[in-house]
Every structure is written in structure tokens, then in C-alpha cells.
């Protein structure tokens, strides 16, 4: 059995195979794989006996369920107004400059993807961003460079910033 099919089977065993178990299973796959490939969506449809189109519709509705191939670390920088007013653009430019990618892209080594997100609820500590599930706030270009270099230098998974 291939690892994704096995992952999906295990998730289905854990959560159940009803329509309302779809979301936790989608989340489970994203947690492991960072995104939902067409193959994994069809596999989920098969495992839960749901129409593939319904799985795809649900997956594309939620902004934290990615359906394009993503890097190991997904950076989501807040694009809403408070963060913008507190210097998010400079932070974004620093990230783009350092990783040599623009919003929506993934680095060629498959390590980082850069996305924007709506409000993270950290307006009081703006600007804020997420790397996978971890929040980083009160960002400045200097601070973000520091954070990213820690990630860039990490060779193996399981380190302090791995999530």
C-alpha cells in the first residue's frame, strides 16, 4: 500500500467514514503532506465513498487546505489592514528577497512556500505571520531574516522550529 493511501486509511479508521468526517481527514492529510494532491483527494473519496467532486469542493473552499504542491514550511503572512499599517510590506519584501520567491510560489528546493492570509487575530502584535502552525509577530525585516535563516540552516526535521 502506498504511504498516502495508508495515511488516508488510518485517518478514516481514526475519524470515521461519514460525510462529516471529511474535514478532519482533509486536515490530517494536509498536516502530513502540506497539501492535498488530486490523487489524495480521489483516494479520500474512495475511502469515504463520497463523490470526488464533493471532496474537491470542500478542499478548495477552505483557505488553509492547500491543493497545490507546497514546500515543507508554509509561510503565511497576514495581509489585512493592521499588519499593512505596521509595516507588513517591508517584511514581505525582506522574505521575497531572501527566499527569491514571490507570494504564491515555492522555493526550488521545496523547503518554503510563501502565501498571504487573512487576519490571524494578532493585530495587537502586528505584523504577524505563520510558519506552518507557529505564529511569529511584531515582525521587522531584521527579525524575519533572523527567523528564516534558522529555518534555512536546519538540515533535519524535528528541530525547535519544526511544526
Amino acid at each position: 500500500m502506498d504511504p498516502i493511501a495508508e495515511l488516508i486509511k488510518n485517518l478514516a479508521d481514526q475519524h470515521g467514514r461519514n460525510r462529516h468526517n471529511l474535514l478532519p481527514i482533509l486536515q490530517g492529510v494536509v498536516e502530513q503532506e502540506k497539501y492535498l494532491s488530486e490523487y489524495s483527494m480521489i483516494e479520500i473519496a474512495r475511502e469515504l465513498d463520497l463523490p470526488a467532486s464533493e471532496v474537491f469542493g470542500t478542499a478548495t473552499f477552505y483557505s488553509f487546505l492547500e491543493y497545490k504542491k507546497m514546500g515543507r514550511y508554509i509561510i503565511r503572512i497576514c495581509k489585512t489592514i493592521t499588519c499593512s499599517m505596521k509595516g507588513k510590506n517591508q517584511v514581505l519584501m525582506a522574505i521575497e528577497d531572501m527566499l527569491k520567491i514571490s507570494v504564491g510560489e515555492t522555493t526550488p528546493d521545496g523547503k518554503f512556500s510563501l502565501l498571504q492570509t487573512n487576519c490571524l487575530g494578532f493585530c495587537h502584535k502586528a505584523p504577524a505571520m505563520l510558519i506552518n502552525n507557529e505564529v511569529y509577530n511584531e515582525l521587522t525585516p531584521e527579525k524575519v531574516r533572523e527567523i528564516l535563516s534558522l529555518f534555512m540552516n536546519r538540515k533535519k526535521e524535528g528541530g525547535p522550529y519544526d511544526s
Binding site: 488530486e38 483527494m41 463523490p51 470526488a52 467532486s53 474537491f56 469542493g57 473552499f61
Partner: peptide, 18 residues
């Protein structure tokens, strides 16, 4: 169950998957 809404808001489209 083939015709379903995908994505959301302004990007919503109805059909089979992408």
C-alpha cells in the same frame, strides 16, 4: 453528485473538479 461548487467567493465555479 458531479456538479458541485468549488473554491469560494468571487473565484467560485460550479462543475466537476478543477
Amino acid at each position: 453528485a458531479l456538479m458541485n461548487p468549488h473554491h469560494r467567493g468571487f473565484s467560485t465555479f460550479i462543475g466537476p473538479s478543477e
